[in-house]
Computed example of a mutant assay.
Amino acid sequence: MIEAAMIWNEPNNKSHWDPELDPDWVAFGQMASLAGQAIRAEAPNLLRVLGGISPIDPVFISKLRARGVLDHVDVVAVHGFPLDWNLWPIHEWPERLKEIQAVTDLPVWVSEVGVSTFGAEEVQEFGLQRTADLLIGRVPRIHWYSLYDLPRSWEATTRHREAEGSSYYRHFYMGLLREDGSPKLAMSHFNRYTPDMGICQWFHYEDHRLDDAVRWLRDLGVRHLRTGLSWADSFRPNALDWFDRQMKALEEFDVTVTFCFTPEHRGLAPHHTSPPQVPEEFAEFCATMVRRYAA
């Protein structure tokens, strides 16, 4: 069911890790190392992936390597959105990968890449085809973000929300499917690139889209899926029931499961981006999930 466990998500992005509380990522490095050790103890053959970085920053990877963090993972991952948020053109993908490959001997995955339809669906249609041309055959895993648009009634996981202007609203239009489940233009091309290209789809707690998502993934020929199990959600009532249902529904796919999000009451600050008060607690959450779904 699970082919890999990813330790956090975009740790060098302030929407996912608070740099004011951990300005040099010392606490993150300790937490990630402990998590990597805990995962290895439960499932020695399970791939451990360092949370996909955004922006793509070789200095950040070098910093973690110098602290020994990369000794406790098997893969590093990057996220890229050159047609929406990054300050580099889409044709530079090979160069961006080489920057990371130059500072580590570990395999490099692209665990999120996508294009918003905020401006026009034709932009996503072009972006999908160009991304496939540039990445397939260059990296072992590619996860397209995402299957569904984010419902407008939900909030995007970002720090400044509407103050970001159009950058914030682009979060809501990353899907191959609209919020109502109807396909966009790019959807008609996606099965040309499976199974080489997978999907990244985050499922919220008791997400109503789960069963329909499985049908779409199956019909598209998707093999590799990336999703998440939230440490914060693990404190909700009946959390394990939801986790069991989610993972059971996804068992036909090769799943990379991302462990992230600090519970408010267990952080140095009451926010999901905060370093935990006790980093061993995050490691134990990772171990518990691996024991339940992978070991």
Results as ranks from 00 to 15, higher is better:
R67V: 06
W25L: 03
L135G: 08
G80A: 13
E121W: 08
Y293F: 12
Y205L: 09
G68A: 10
P58D: 02
K184V: 02
R130F: 09
A5S: 12
W85V: 10
V222H: 04
M247T: 03
D149E: 09
P275G: 10
L135H: 02
N9W: 15
Y293A: 03
T131H: 08
H265T: 02
E280H: 14
P151L: 05
G127S: 08
L240Q: 14
E112Q: 06
S153R: 15
N9T: 14
H79F: 03
E264M: 04
R130C: 06
D219E: 13
G165P: 04
W202F: 15
R178H: 15
R223T: 15
R152I: 14
T288E: 15
L177H: 00
R141L: 14
T288A: 12
E10H: 12
F285V: 00
H91A: 14
P19S: 00
L97D: 09
P237V: 08
T227A: 03
D74L: 00
L210N: 01
D105H: 10
H91K: 13
L225N: 05
F243K: 09
F172L: 11
E121S: 08
R291S: 05
L268Q: 15
G80R: 00
L185Y: 10
Y193N: 01
V255T: 05
R266L: 15
R152D: 13
S33V: 05
H160N: 13
R170Q: 10
H208P: 07
F282Q: 01
I7P: 00
R215T: 12
F203D: 08
R236Y: 12
N238T: 06
E112L: 07
V103N: 02
Y173C: 14
H272A: 09
F282I: 07
M247E: 02
L240I: 11
A38F: 13
D149S: 12
D244I: 03
S182R: 10
V290N: 07
I100M: 06
W216E: 06
G36K: 07
D180Q: 00
R161A: 15
